[in-house]
Simulated scan of single mutants.
Amino acid sequence: MKEVVHEVAPDTPIEVWFMDEARVGQQGTLTRIWAKRGTRPRAVRDHRYTWAWIFGAVCPERAVGAAVVLPEVNVHAMNIHLAEISRCVSKGAHAVLVLDGAGWHTSPRLHLPENISLLPLPRYAPELNPVENIWEFLRQNLLSHRVWDSYDAIVDACCHAWSTLMRTPDQIATITRRSWAQVKL
């Protein structure tokens, strides 16, 4: 982490943020549900092909997050998300944003805000990104077993799911906090 923030002024508070994106849509995820032993409960399943992408980031230590819901993933969408994260970083602090190696995360066309530095994860290591657990939680509790009529309905569901989670800071901390992700410079 020291290499990532070497140009940050000394005494600047450092926040560790994690980010990722998830596709949500009509080809939704089926999750487990409670049912009487020996029965096969019915669950809705949509076979249409409309979806949206949640770009989400969390700061486990502050138990806050920033997200945008967009129709596609690309460099332009990533720039929108970086701007949103930048607005949520504490005033006077610098964020180290941990992310995977997707092409739109590392493009030279990214407009990196001054209060954010990027720290890529090792290849093939999604288990190191706690935002993956956020997606699992949202799918299990707020986004599964649904049929949405339109793209707007998907966006509304994504926004509602993210907002619901952000209103529970203890839940955010429980899902995302990792002992190895503490700031120790």
Rank of each mutant, 00 (worst) to 15 (best):
P130N: 09
S90I: 03
E136S: 12
T176K: 02
P108E: 13
C88P: 00
V75S: 03
R87L: 10
K91S: 14
E114P: 07
P120C: 08
L142F: 15
S90K: 15
S90M: 03
A157W: 04
C158I: 10
V147W: 09
W135T: 04
E132I: 12
T176W: 06
N133V: 06
I85D: 09
A157L: 00
A157N: 06
G101C: 08
R177S: 15
T174F: 02
Y151H: 14
V69D: 02
S86H: 07
D149H: 12
H160G: 01
L119I: 09
L165G: 09
V89C: 09
L118M: 12
H145F: 12
L110T: 12
L70W: 00
L143F: 02
Y151K: 13
V131P: 00
L70D: 01
M166Y: 04
L128I: 05
C158E: 08
S179L: 08
G101V: 10
E72K: 14
I85V: 15
H145W: 11
V73Y: 03
T164V: 11
Q140V: 03
I116T: 08
H81Y: 08
H160Y: 12
S179P: 06
P120N: 04
L82E: 04
N133M: 13
I175N: 00
L110S: 05
E72G: 10
E132P: 15
V131C: 10
